[in-house]
Design a protein around this nucleic acid. Structure first.
Lengths: 336, 336
DNA sequence: GTGAAAGCGCTAACAT
DNA sequence: ATGTTAGCGCTTTCAC
């Protein structure tokens, strides 16, 4: 930068002003500096700027995993919006490890970003309450979060309720829930969606058979696949399946195909997430559309406000909000 | 850091030495400093360290898109390896835009990272040759790259050749290639895989009918879906399909199901990438396993060597290598 | 084994 | 409209 200043016959400060589009530089000087910059191929040093100005030009996204479609798509949606604002998105994965999640939002790491979006899997409200920091943080997902943070979540309970109501209203009486929980004390994704499952049953006066609530390890296709195989082998009858994720539903459909059980005539199936794959499965998978685009938009909006407020020295920081995005059914061939 | 130094009754330099595990600090002092650090909850400032020492602690991965399974899985694999080395992975997406790709590997941006892995879609050798920089860069993918860079690629031609040979050897005579190119002058993914398709035909003495070479816009399920519909509507007969990606193959299977064409009896189908979805499609999709794990390992190994060399002031920088990972068939239900 | 001084490249605040 | 000064938090160099 000093080279540029010398070459253009101005001070480093003027170069800085030109680069950052600040006022108080004559059009003439501006042009001359710009010309020199491109002549010398000068590039600003981000580290130095960050050190001095405190801004990093980056927004962090902290997720358990990058190759799960849900997080990959979240990242993609956010990346678009963030780039529109002249920042860029840095994706960090924690592997779903509570310690690594906490570490990622530790004071020092946060300072690497102008803002952070985190989708925690393990960390809970108590841990979070300890933390003090000025970097804007938006939480996303179903884990409970202290009221002092912005939080955007999908309507897990409502979405599940709608899905299961649909199955019950179209004649299913024994609906298996793949990934369900027997006790739904905790507020994690499986418990919340299971709660919706139970609500739907209660509303329509159908008893829940606990043998139809199948706990699984993960929520990938294999878990859905094995859950159905196990159900079938142990002779438990069912005429509907609510899979807690589309990934699990993919495995469910595959298992039903192996067992030559017709979908949706004998068993109807519905998933959750409304992923891209649903349109191409055989049969096409009905699912719950959780409003991921709306969530991403909301996250960006919150971040915008907070980043702006942080720039003003935290004067008019908005109050933290909790937003619940509404879910809708996307019905296709796997339901009646 | 100065606070810590005061509190522990030493100089900032000693604190720095302790933090970086450098020798020349007595065990006693070290312990005292460490205790003070945790007492004060001190965290190093990455920006300042980067500014001064040049290391950033981050490895960049520059890809066209994050939510395509291929890139998402690449990111995931690399993230694991990179984290094992105490660095972290920053994913940047270019949207497949040539300008943004070039910009991402411009001098200034590269300095943000200790090493960069880039999977270019558009940028070509000529553009790259201009660039001079000392940040280690490893290229991945099929675009031609100047010999002065490390380059890891899959065996697109060989994998496609094996896939199509298999179709021809099991009785298919009219194999459609979804995403194929009529002219294969360029060395991009579609052209290379089409080249394998043509080689297989040549080897087995089967003529290629250009009407079976179906160009498509993108390589997602919709493109495969529409390609098959179009082929069928225009009355072009075919008894085999080679889809250039598993994603496209997913759409192909869906279209064949709609048309009530039996797979693999009437038409056999093979994809490329051996993605996670193949196991769960109906029927299970045969595919080409391109050795993505091996590619990721190789990338990490190259990066390791170069980052180490860069640390030594570029003394013993290894010669650039081009690695081609071998592909294998993964045969499932969609082929005979 | 430890410390003091200098400076990495930039920008906020204050001159001019 | 432009320049000067100072300092962000760390590490390199060299002296003790």
């Amino acid at each position: 930068m000093i080279d540029v200043a010398h070459e253009a016959g101005v001070s480093a400060m003027t170069v800085s002003n030109v680069i950052n589009g600040r006022p108080g530089v004559s059009a003439q000087t501006r042009l001359r500096v710009l010309a020199t910059i491109s002549k010398l191929g000068y590039q600003v040093n981000h580290a130095a700027r960050h050190l001095r100005a405190g801004r990093t030009g980056a927004v962090g996204l902290i997720v358990p995993d990058i190759d799960r479609p849900y997080y990959a798509q979240l990242a993609s949606r956010l990346a678009g919006g963030v780039e529109k604002r002249g920042l860029h998105l840095v994706v960090e994965r924690t592997g779903g490890d509570a310690e690594r999640e906490l570490e990622a939002i530790s004071f020092g790491r946060l300072r690497m970003y102008d803002g952070v979006v985190i989708s925690p899997l393990r960390v809970d409200a108590a841990d979070l309450d300890q933390l003090r920091f000025e970097t804007p943080v938006v939480f996303i997902g179903e884990r409970p979060v202290p009221a002092s943070f912005d939080h955007v979540m999908m309507d897990n309970v409502g979405g599940a309720r709608q899905a299961v109501r649909h199955l019950l209203e179209t004649g299913s009486r024994r609906v298996a829930v793949i990934g369900g929980r027997h006790d739904d004390q905790v507020d994690d994704m499986p418990s919340l969606r299971t709660r919706g499952y139970r609500q739907a049953h209660a509303e329509l006066g159908v008893d829940v058979e606990e043998e139809l609530v199948v706990q699984v390890e993960s929520f990938d296709p294999w878990s859905g696949f094995h859950a159905v195989k196990r159900l079938h082998e142990s002779g438990v009858a069912f005429d509907g399946v609510f899979a807690l994720t589309d990934a699990a539903a993919t495995g469910v459909l595959r298992a039903l195909a192996d067992l030559r059980i017709e979908v949706p005539r004998e068993v109807q199936v519905i998933g959750f997430d409304n992923g891209k794959e649903t349109e191409f499965l055989v049969p096409r998978l009905s699912s719950v559309e959780p409003g991921n685009d709306a969530m991403a938009d909301k996250v960006l909006e919150l971040l915008d406000h907070r980043v702006a407020a942080a720039g003003d020295g935290g004067q008019d920081a908005p109050d933290p909000t909790t937003t619940i995005v509404t879910a809708q059914l996307a019905l296709r061939e796997s339901t009646r």
